[in-house]
Simulated scan of single mutants.
Amino acid sequence: MSAATLPEGDWIRGISIRQPWTTAILTGAKTIENRPRPWRAGWVLLHAGLQIDRPALRLPLVARTIRGRDLVTGAVVGVARITDCHQDPAGSPPCTEWAHPGTWHLELADVQALDLPIPARGQLGPWRPTEDLVAQVLQQLPDLRP
């Protein structure tokens, strides 16, 4: 299937995440993303937002994970597949050390980093990427399919 015959519509969405969290996902260490609302399963473009969560840089877990890596902002830096979305039951331990209590946890798999970040604007909540942006991602990840 070529890029021209990919299904149109909702097969891929964008998710904007502040750094250093985006980079932690790209390393493969952070396998969940915390969100205030549930998301549906499927492919997402990983967009590094313009802002950096500076206090997070001082957390030992984060510092170890991102050590020596560039914190690109304002660009799509990879893709991932959301495989599930859940909340931890009240009083139970977090599902991973990256989980924040009281949030929805998007379980991420098949994470692939782009060799060349693609400058793009993101937004809060799930967003629909332009066809041009998806085409640029597929130039770097030609085997990516819904």
Rank of each mutant, 00 (worst) to 15 (best):
Q87V: 08
H86T: 13
R40A: 14
G68D: 08
Q112C: 11
R37Q: 10
A113T: 13
W21H: 12
A120F: 06
P20S: 00
E97A: 14
D53R: 09
W21D: 04
L50D: 15
D143L: 15
Q139D: 15
L144F: 02
V134E: 00
V62Q: 01
G68M: 09
P93N: 04
W98K: 01
P20Q: 01
P142W: 00
P146Y: 06
L133T: 08
A75D: 11
A99K: 01
R58T: 06
D143R: 14
L116R: 14
A90T: 07
D10C: 14
D70H: 03
P146V: 06
R69P: 11
A120V: 06
A29D: 15
I17Y: 09
V72P: 03
D84S: 13
V44M: 07
L114D: 11
G68F: 09
L114W: 06
V134P: 00
R67T: 13
G68C: 08
G28N: 02
G78C: 03
L116V: 15
R54Q: 13
A29V: 10
V72I: 14
L124D: 05
Q87P: 04
L114K: 06
Q136A: 15
L59E: 13
L133E: 04
S92I: 07
A99N: 03
L45A: 08
S2L: 10
D143Q: 11
P55A: 07
